[in-house]
């Protein structure tokens, strides 16, 4: 795994993983990972199955709490921390509100419409009133080309459409970083393109992104190799 800044001569770090360790039983998956992601940078992570790519991504927003190590995000330390430092720790929930995540299996909420999927966190986490939240949610669904699917439930959407709703659901929270965990692996081949196209535009718009993928082409295109 490695990384290269893609734009800006003096890139600011946004996320910094420091000495992350994580074991599942006797399987020591992450052995002191350090990773710095700068503003506007696109980091693509390749590697064989079981090498801990997804685990690394999931520790970045503390969906997986590391055994030890620290996640630095815009001036605040999160996670269990380092043995020799005793910095005040931020709440994982506040970290997650600022980092978006897209999952391999989309994980849309099946009991509510596409619009409600995107508006849910705005309403419940950011306490935006319903009309305003739904307008913003519809705007983001429009950005991913799904304005006509506002009223559809996830099961009525194709895999590619579902993944685009999932991207809108993350983007509507206006995250500083987007994490993608094999976003196209569960898609039929003919649906991969529409999702990659959205990700490509997002990369061009300057979004900071960390992507775990098998799509070698995508990694090369956004200018980062691993």
């Amino acid at each position: 795994m490695n990384e290269t800044p893609t734009n800006g001569s003096d890139p600011q770090p946004v996320v910094r993983l420091r000495e992350i360790h994580k074991s599942f039983g006797s399987n020591h998956v992450l052995k002191g990972i350090n990773l710095t992601v700068h503003k506007g940078e696109h980091v693509v992570i390749f590697g064989p199955s079981g090498s801990g790519k997804s685990t690394l991504l999931r520790t970045t927003n503390l969906l997986e709490i590391p055994d030890s190590g620290s996640v630095w995000f815009e001036g605040t330390e999160y996670g269990p921390g380092l043995d020799y430092e005793h910095l005040p720790r931020g709440k994982a929930r506040l970290l997650r509100q600022q980092i978006g995540m897209v999952f391999q299996q989309f994980n849309l909420f099946p009991h509510i419409t596409a619009l409600e999927n995107v508006a849910l966190a705005l309403r419940r986490v950011k306490r935006v009133p319903k009309p305003e939240a739904e307008l913003r949610a519809a705007t983001y669904l429009d950005r991913v080309g799904l304005l006509d699917k506002l009223g559809a439930y996830p099961t009525q959407l194709s895999g590619g459409q579902q993944q685009r709703v999932a991207i809108a659901r993350s983007l509507v929270m206006e995250p500083k970083v987007m994490l993608f965990d094999e976003p196209t692996s569960a898609l039929d081949p003919e649906l991969v393109g529409e999702v990659l196209a959205v990700m490509r535009s997002l990369a061009e718009s300057g979004m900071t992104m960390v992507v775990v993928t098998h799509e070698m082409g995508f990694g090369e295109e956004v200018g980062v190799h691993g």
Binding site: L63, R93, F103, N107, V125, A166
Partner: peptide, 10 residues
């Protein structure tokens, strides 16, 4: 489902 909800800060 729980992971997705928590990933948006719920």
């Amino acid at each position: 489902q729980r992971q997705a909800a928590m990933s948006v800060g719920m």
